[in-house]
Design a protein around this nucleic acid. Structure first.
Lengths: 166, 166
DNA sequence: TATTGTTATACTCTATAACTATA
DNA sequence: TATAGTTATAGAGTATAACAATA
């Protein structure tokens, strides 16, 4: 492959002159979350509730634990979230006939409507930010983020899930 | 997983078919932080201590409060961090001769060495991830991240700093 | 015995308020 | 009185452990 990485490589002396990727991504994520917080508030949703609504419709989730892990939360953490969403008629928790330990989660029509409304509003705000970028960079950014999100190194879940006993 | 990328605009009916920007950036940031955690541990640095070392050398910081705000932390939160860094001889806290309330912060030679070593190791790990991207996308990603980080909408600090009386 | 969901408890992180010393 | 730094306290968020129901 090429040797044209001279200007931004770290092999010249061990003193990198680029900002860390994490040092840009983490604050950006914090800012994006802060920016969408008012929108979520306006829709009566917490961040985790929104994450649940988003993930529920995309792939049919069977167990609550799987849902929790999918959105990067703890098994015990989303229970209060699910309780609230169910009480508001946004989701349904049905016992699985085949395995009554399992509660099958599904989105109600109202839940889907709220999800779409919130996501539309959020992405409208994001579009305003992305509009500052050149079209090529914007497309490459979304493509690169998607690619990085799928990397096995980064999708590795937290260790110690069921492995460390006591 | 659907890959229906026919329309990436939100004007057609209010139902976006793109993942939220935050939904990609935030987990990515979490994963990047998790990935660099072992490196920081190996260097005996916490995330905030590393952030302090990174930011100290870049721009001469006068007050601790300014440093805290620059790295997105609270004024009271970095004090223990500074105590530890100072005790280990990585930074120096000198009273400002002109205003003895102010402690001037500076990096020692050893602090700079440790900072460079940690950053080099961290960016080596990040380079492995970025290597998965096409060169053009990689460059555009870094450029776009840098651009977005500079946006006024996203760099706006938290409100209510000193405004509420009592 | 193992697993799903749940509850209760403890721990970590973070922010708010109160204190000192300088100005 | 106001500000920089510090300390102490309280709150939010999170994870770990124990429990009931089902397999």
């Amino acid at each position: 492959m090429g040797e044209n990485t001279a200007d931004r490589d770290t092999t010249s002396g061990g003193r990198p002159d680029r900002p860390d990727l994490a040092a840009m991504v983490v604050p950006l994520g914090r800012a994006l979350m802060a920016a969408e917080q008012p929108v979520l508030d306006a829709h009566g949703l917490t961040m985790w509730a929104y994450a649940v609504l988003l993930h529920l419709d995309e792939t049919p989730i069977r167990t609550q634990a799987a849902l929790a892990e999918a959105i990067g939360a703890d098994k015990t953490r989303i229970i209060a979230v699910l309780d609230d969403l169910e009480a508001r008629g946004l989701i349904v928790r049905q016992p699985d006939p085949g395995d009554r330990r399992v509660r099958l989660l599904s989105l109600t029509a109202e839940g889907r409507r709220l999800r779409d409304a919130a996501q539309t509003a959020i992405q409208e705000g994001e579009e305003r930010l992305l509009a500052r970028l050149p079209a090529a960079d914007r497309a490459a950014l979304l493509r690169a983020l998607h690619t990085l999100s799928e990397l096995p190194e980064l999708t590795t879940r937290k260790p110690g899930r069921g492995s460390s006993r006591s």
